[in-house]
Design a protein around this nucleic acid. Structure first.
Lengths: 340, 340
DNA sequence: AGTATTTACGAAAACGTTTGCGTATTGTGT
DNA sequence: ACACAATACGCAAACGTTTTCGTAAATACT
């Protein structure tokens, strides 16, 4: 019942507390036979060190925090999956905090983490995060941050991203190759690093093909489904609607599907769609959705590995480093010129 | 930089450590003016109590663990969402552990939690969890468990579930009403509490309608996508295939969609499908998928609220209680008799 | 005025570890 | 035989809180 602690263990073994402690940590100061005796008894009594006592003493929490906008999102869910798997292997614990795209909440969460509750933070910022003082403060307190996907350039640390610029180009090229002449880009907040890069790739590819886009072809969406629905509907309901859509994030593509359903627009005949997405059911949609899919699990895994690389060395400072993984283009029906 | 602690704060304020501590905790022992002075200085210097010291002293972690099979799953993601939202409100922290349907891993995780790292555990067991000693042990150590969805009946505690039996009946009735005469049930491990109830509802409704089902109409699936794919393919490829499928979990429905794609079986003309699911894109599938949808967010929220109800009262024992929330039947195209 | 009570604070122990240092015992080298 | 080093262990401080108790000073009561 009452968990046994070092003191009781020591008493039972007729040893001092320090000897038992050192034996358990396999110190060279302790003889082999005593070590065995201690280990055996500890196992027998199911001893497990109190994490608060040892955390207090060693100033280590054996815990990392994951701070992300959402969890009910295929990308972040997979990333968390990757993070958790390496954490579990490393005997670390994973705290999770959701910002729900609320910048103020992100700041509050950071404030809560300043007191060394965690040894490190893995995070993706909200779409409204336009300055990084709160991250800077955390770093100043000696808590390292590793950023993934939605990063802050200003913060000096390791950043795991995907080749969003190239992917943006590739996806755009694919649409053009399939006959698109007037492509709209569904953006998501000007601040978001990855969306910027995706858009740059999009614009670059257009320019390469000498296509000029009207400003209203860049639709700036946000985190409100209803508002986005209206914006997309406005874009598509007129006579002069675009013939293709490049959605910067998954949610905007599914919303577009819904709008098309209402407006009775046929995909891909009347409108081609491609988007960044980790949707497991992309191929089951009607029509199947073409996607640029990020290696979300690997991104999480890599972020965690980088973090532990420094934590293992007791390094609280992580130098600038950009790790770029590759996304994969999955061409399905929604983006193809099926008439040919 | 170096976080300020009570000792330094006390020195600066020319007060004793205990006075400062009490002032911060708003003790009646401290005068109003000193309280103000302390609060002001604490805020100014950004004081935040060391969670390990206070955790050690008070034997409280202000942390709960969430132990679930997966996170890349709409249901669990939403449930986590619910849990996290009330935890954040209560100033609690949320640790997350994924079992990946591995019973041994579940046991290891529980072992890791025995040392009071958390004040409570919210969990859904793996599909292979067929005995509960590991949960019993945790309870014995004074750590309360609240179970949701996939519960263990043997464990005495609060359990949050949905009306799976009724939902199973309703879904079955709906299929029958739409002309189904030979319905197959895709099960998932005999141990899983919720699947049992869903199956019972299914069988009960069949009986009510005097439909007898061949034993091979109950297909026992597992956590291997490939294996499930084959099992479902075997079920559907013959001449004598069923005319409807009731999938106990989302993944089995999407796998069925894939099989139908390969076998060129038309849904719902040749085969009707309904399943338990929290898929956000159910209505966008081809055809749109009829679902019984659980209030996943509310389930998580309720589980957390029950947990905190007891934690707030310092109660480590949670009496048996069954809280049942209601699922909603969303009838879409995949299950309907569209020919009529 | 003298005693009892309340108010406001400080001293110190405790939570369970980890770790630097001291020391008794044993072993090694001349 | 001696000094000296290595081995194996114990003592006690420290980590930063919380909390019990003690006690001056201030107030209240007879």
């Amino acid at each position: 019942m009452a968990a046994v602690n070092l003191k009781e263990l020591a008493k039972i073994l007729n040893l001092s507390i320090s000897t038992v402690s050192k034996a358990l940590r396999d110190s060279h100061e302790i003889g082999a036979s005593t070590k065995e005796r201690v280990l055996a008894k500890a196992k027998e009594l199911d001893y497990s060190p109190n994490p608060f006592a040892s955390g207090l003493r060693r100033n280590k929490s054996k815990t990392v925090a994951v701070v992300v906008p959402e969890v009910a999102n295929n990308y972040f869910a997979l990333a968390i999956n990757g993070i958790e798997s390496v954490a579990q292997e490393k005997d670390y614990h994973v705290l999770i905090y959701l910002t729900h795209e609320d910048f103020e909440k992100e700041k509050r969460i950071m404030k809560h983490l300043e007191n060394k509750r965690v040894d490190g933070i893995l995070m993706s910022v909200t779409m409204h995060t336009n300055q990084c003082d709160h991250l800077f403060d955390i770093q100043q307190k000696g808590i390292p941050i590793v950023m993934f996907d939605r990063i802050c350039h200003e913060i000096e640390t390791a950043k795991i991203t995907t080749d969003d610029y190239i992917s943006g180009m590739n996806a755009t090229k694919h649409l053009i190759d399939n006959g698109a002449k007037d492509i709209a880009f569904l953006s998501l907040g000007d601040e978001v690093s990855i969306v910027q890069k995706r858009k740059s790739g999009f614009l670059e590819e257009l320019e390469k093909n000498n296509i000029v886009t009207a400003p209203n072809r860049i639709v700036n969406c946000n985190d409100s489904d209803e508002s986005n629905y209206q914006k997309i509907k406005n874009l598509l309901k007129g006579k002069q609607r675009p013939d293709a859509i490049f959605a910067s994030v998954e949610k905007l593509a599914t919303t577009t599907y819904e709008v098309c359903k209402e407006l009775k627009i046929n995909i891909p005949q009347d409108l081609k769609i491609i988007c960044f997405s980790n949707l497991a059911t992309a191929s089951l949609l009607s029509p199947s959705l073409s996607t640029i899919t990020q290696p979300a699990y690997e991104i999480g895994k890599t972020a965690a590995e980088v973090m532990f690389k420094y934590l293992d060395k007791n390094k609280t400072y992580i130098p600038n480093e950009n790790i770029v993984l590759h996304s994969t283009l999955f061409i399905r029906d929604s983006s193809q010129n099926l008439s040919k």
